[in-house]
């Protein structure tokens, strides 16, 4: 990745025959997909069909019970997990730290130069000095999503990113996602609602069950 935020290498994430088992129950099997740079994938499906598990497998937070996952085109030793942003249900926010300290910590910890504009992405700059414990649920979500802007990573894994967001923040998120894809990033997201972003691909999990 270059300093100007564009991704140097065209990457391609390929999953073949992924199997997921949680607690002895087979959640899904035979899941294939491929996402390349400048592409995005929307995961859909009813509750409990493994959308979050699939994202966590891609982030290498959990191991698949079968199948393979590889990233083509990468020429350094970073793992897929170290190349991705995972924004899950937990916001990873310390309530005792201020908004700015939270984002500065993740910036430093994820190994990025401090980006001043990260808080502007979701309009949190006016609240920079406020303890994160005083934020509303939607504002905490915005703070968690601000990590996307603070640290440049090629692969974004977004699990229901719009939960709790107001319309302005949803629009900000869509702008951020569009900009990310435009510079060669990849996005895999789950959502039950239409977040107004046009995904290149979509994958329906748990398709055999009637809706």
């Amino acid at each position: 990745m270059n300093g100007d935020g564009t991704m140097a290498q065209p990457l391609r994430l390929v999953a073949e025959g992924l199997v997921c088992e949680r607690g002895g129950r087979r959640v899904f099997e035979g899941v294939d997909f491929a996402v390349a740079s400048r592409e995005s994938l929307l995961l859909t499906g009813p509750n409990g069909t493994g959308k979050t598990s699939l994202l966590r497998i891609v982030a290498s937070l959990i191991a698949p019970a079968g199948g393979s996952l590889r990233l083509d085109g990468a020429d350094d030793a970073l793992t897929i997990g170290q190349r991705c942003h995972y924004v899950g249900h937990a916001n990873a926010i310390k309530t005792a730290l201020s908004v700015e300290e939270n984002i500065a910590f993740w910036g430093a910890f994820m190994g990025a130069a401090p980006a001043g504009g990260a808080l502007d992405a979701f309009g949190l700059a006016p609240h920079a000095g406020v303890p994160a414990g005083l934020l509303s649920a939607g504002q905490r979500r915005r703070l968690a999503l601000s990590r996307l802007a603070a640290v440049a990573r090629p692969l974004w894994l977004l699990d229901e990113p719009t939960v709790g967001l107001d319309t302005a923040s949803q629009a900000a998120l869509v702008d951020l996602m569009s900009a990310h894809v435009a510079v060669g990033g990849m996005i895999i997201a789950t959502s039950h609602v239409d977040i107004g972003f046009s995904f290149n691909h979509s994958l329906k999990l748990g398709g055999e069950r009637a809706p």
Binding site: S60, L61, Q82, G88, N91, A92, M110, G111
Partner: peptide, 14 residues
Amino acid sequence: HEDGSLEQMLLAPM
């Protein structure tokens, strides 16, 4: 672990 920071630490370069 409870607020999700630990799983983010698994994704860190360190």
